[in-house]
Design a protein around this nucleic acid. Structure first.
Lengths: 227, 227
DNA sequence: AAAGTGCCTTGATCCAGATCAACGAACGGC
DNA sequence: GCCGTTCGTTGATCTGGATCAAGGCACTTT
């Protein structure tokens, strides 16, 4: 079933399987297998037909979209525990975006057809899918609002804050993925991202080291220099 | 059941009920009623708990979000035939956005609890919800890509093109909603929208009159001045 | 250890689109 | 039919962030 023992607990805690329940989880897991992929690997390509659902066990994956001119952005970055059936998998439509490993990753591959059958048959599973989709819709709405009405510095601040437990006043946000991808996810250039991080550091809200940000004061970080 | 005869055919053709099937439709319609609201009316308010699902029968509704500072944007504009269960209704969570009538509207009000029960019980209905959510997720992804990598003029062009049948070379795009709302939906100021429309007219791709745009050459409109 | 090779930051300049400020046109109220 | 009010356009200016162009570093590769 897997080419290496897989962390059942992580799965159980993932928002999706928590909603789907043990039974559905067991059923989906039986024919699934895990895969280890290096940074840069492409999990699926825009316009392809989906054969698998991907549940991320470790690492980060970026959903990337290319426009007609060939320029690319990162639409969203997902971390461990997330299932992204870029709804394609459910609907049986071609992927709207590509999925690329932004770090080395370990993914659970769930056969898409099996999943589609499961959804039709098992109300708990379809309920879980509905919740997942709703959550993902909200993520995108949040991002649209962010892009439309917040400055790049604010977007960076919020991005960092989201990487640390909700109620913590301080903490460490890991940033294992390349700056380019983070910048794209935030709708800015790497240069602007770099400058925004500097500014936040100058304000005393964070302290940067190469692949992580120490958040010194979450509240201050979020409210900005509006002192 | 309704305070005025309602166009069953429009409902049947709406993407949601088309997927849900006649039976589910009939069941949901029985306790529902329609409402006629003037431009500016608020269908639901951000942070409120959802009591109804809204199926738009006529007019346009804008999903608006306010940030902490109080500035407002339009996240999406929906037209006749659309059902927007700003997923809140499904999940039983407070609305993430407000819904405002951008024109005079006629809406079918479907009790949310009834809908939630229906989803749990009827596979066809939950299937329809999944499809709706997937479609709406894709709309938002599209918009994020638009905002991240296209200029305001391109966004306007695409917005107009989407308001005319896919395969038509020419046609009329109605723009009944206030310019301010359209501009916000497109992530720009009314001034910029106005100038973009002028530019597209100068390129000979469209001809504007106050509340509609005549699209003279859809292909040209979409490709831009890259002549 | 030297020489690549990515990846990130820093600095200088530029520009699309925001902002500010009138101005005009459509519309409902009386 | 006039008047205030709301909504859209136009023009002038300003600016956040993009773009362009070098540098640092931290890695592998030899």
């Amino acid at each position: 079933m897997a080419d290496r023992p897989l962390n059942i607990d992580l799965l159980r805690r993932s928002p999706f399987f928590a909603a789907a329940g043990e039974a559905a989880m067991a059923r989906l897991l039986r024919p699934s297998f895990t895969q280890q992929l290096p940074r840069g690997a492409v999990l699926f390509e825009q316009h392809e037909m989906p054969n698998f659902l991907h549940l991320l066990l470790a690492g980060s994956v970026g959903l990337q979209a290319r426009d007609e001119a060939g320029t690319e952005t990162t639409v969203e970055i997902f971390g461990a525990g997330e299932l992204f059936l870029a709804p394609a998998a459910i609907l049986g439509l071609p992927y709207l975006v590509s999925g690329a490993a932004l770090t080395d990753v370990r993914v659970l591959m769930i056969p898409a057809d099996l999943f589609r059958e499961g959804i039709a048959a098992d109300p708990a599973l379809s309920r879980a899918a509905i919740e997942l989709l709703s959550r993902h819709w909200r993520l995108m709405v949040d991002q649209v609002v962010d892009l439309k009405l917040r400055s790049s510095e604010r977007r960076v601040a919020r991005f960092l804050a989201r990487r640390v437990p909700e109620e913590a006043g301080a903490g460490v946000a890991a940033l294992p993925e390349p700056r380019t991808a983070i910048a794209a996810r935030l709708g800015m250039t790497p240069e602007t991202l770099s400058r925004a991080l500097n500014a936040l550091e100058a304000q005393g809200a964070i302290r940067m080291s190469s692949r992580e940000a120490h958040i010194l004061d979450r509240a201050r970080l979020l409210q900005g220099r509006a002192r």
